[in-house]
């Protein structure tokens, strides 16, 4: 029984780590710019396809692809910010206006990315077979790919945490999400920090995509599931908060796993959304949210 519980806890942690990677990027973008990126899952889908193509065409190890994807997605994110978002932030007179306009833009971007992927790569399912080994830790089983996904997600999330707390740029990012006006008055180059934050947020989604490619079949409509998961986790943990996204993701993963195991998988969504509702009733801004 104890072994079962440890096993289920491990399931929760591994799936939670992937949720965390997706949610942290989403929350970074929201925290800094009040922009709700509903195309986040679609960006992850692009990352998954790139991993697939790098492997199929050039036989690139997915872990190397991961580094390439970070290098590609930071400028991609910056470009999305400069082309689509910067103007909105400048002309909007209120936070609500930014949220609303960006929601429409990203909804459009989401459809654009999905439809382009459909045209470019057709609707077929694609999958990669990599890291197929099994790890047995004294009766507790884990596949190599899940273990690697867990490792990558943890390293990704915690190096991001170090970046946020220890570097000047990281501190500037936190300053802007805490108090935008004060940050401007203190001479923080908001526009540059926005661009960078966007790049980092998008690259985190791309890294998430690499992990998805290892575990799930890849197809153009893959994004929706992950945008929804990411948003739910962010709202649970508190929109705009790093700790919130992280805690929300692991809480969600673990509650889902135990719910599936002890109550039934059919109840997975009922349980997780009930938990979300409870948290919102008790604390409308989410577990670590900065007040609405």
């Amino acid at each position: 029984m104890l072994l079962d519980i440890i096993q289920v806890l491990l399931f929760g942690l591994t799936i939670g780590a992937i949720y965390a990677l997706v949610a942290v990027g989403l929350n970074l973008i929201f925290g800094v710019m009040n922009v709700l990126n509903v195309a986040h899952g679609d960006i992850a889908m692009l990352g998954a396809y790139l991993t697939y193509w790098f492997l199929v065409l050039f036989n690139v190890n997915p872990l190397i692809s991961l580094l390439l994807i970070i290098a590609i997605f930071i400028p991609l994110g910056a470009a999305i910010y400069i082309l689509l978002i910067r103007k909105i932030i400048h002309i909007s007179s209120s936070v609500e206006e930014i949220i609303f306009s960006s929601l429409i833009i990203f909804f459009g971007l989401s459809i654009f990315i999905e439809s382009s992927a459909l045209l470019a790569w057709k609707a077929d399912f694609r999958s990669i077979i990599y890291f197929e080994g099994m790890i047995n830790l004294g009766g507790i089983l884990l596949s190599e790919k899940t273990f690697i996904a867990l490792l990558v997600a943890l390293i990704g999330v915690f190096s991001f945490e170090v970046f946020l707390t220890r570097t000047y740029i990281g501190k500037a990012i936190r300053a802007i999400s805490q108090n935008r006006v004060a940050a401007i008055l203190m001479g923080i180059p908001v526009d540059r920090i926005n661009t960078l934050s966007f790049g980092i947020g998008i690259s985190l989604a791309g890294v998430g995509g690499v992990l998805l490619a290892l575990i799930y079949p890849i197809y153009p409509a893959l994004g929706v599931t992950w945008t929804m998961r990411g948003l739910t986790v962010c709202i649970l943990g508190g929109l705009g908060s790093f700790t919130g996204a992280l805690t929300g993701a692991f809480v969600m993963g673990i509650v889902e796993s135990f719910g599936s195991y002890f109550i039934g998988t059919a109840w997975r969504d009922v349980i997780s959304y009930l938990m979300l509702l409870l948290v919102l009733v008790l604390k409308p801004s989410g577990m670590f949210g900065k007040g609405v």
Partner: peptide, 20 residues
């Protein structure tokens, strides 16, 4: 017997139950 939702992200908890 069990039904799982569409867009399921993890089936391991259910499959572990089946294993037992």
């Amino acid at each position: 017997e069990e039904e799982y939702p569409k867009g399921i992200t993890d089936l391991r908890p259910m499959l572990s139950r089946i294993k037992t």
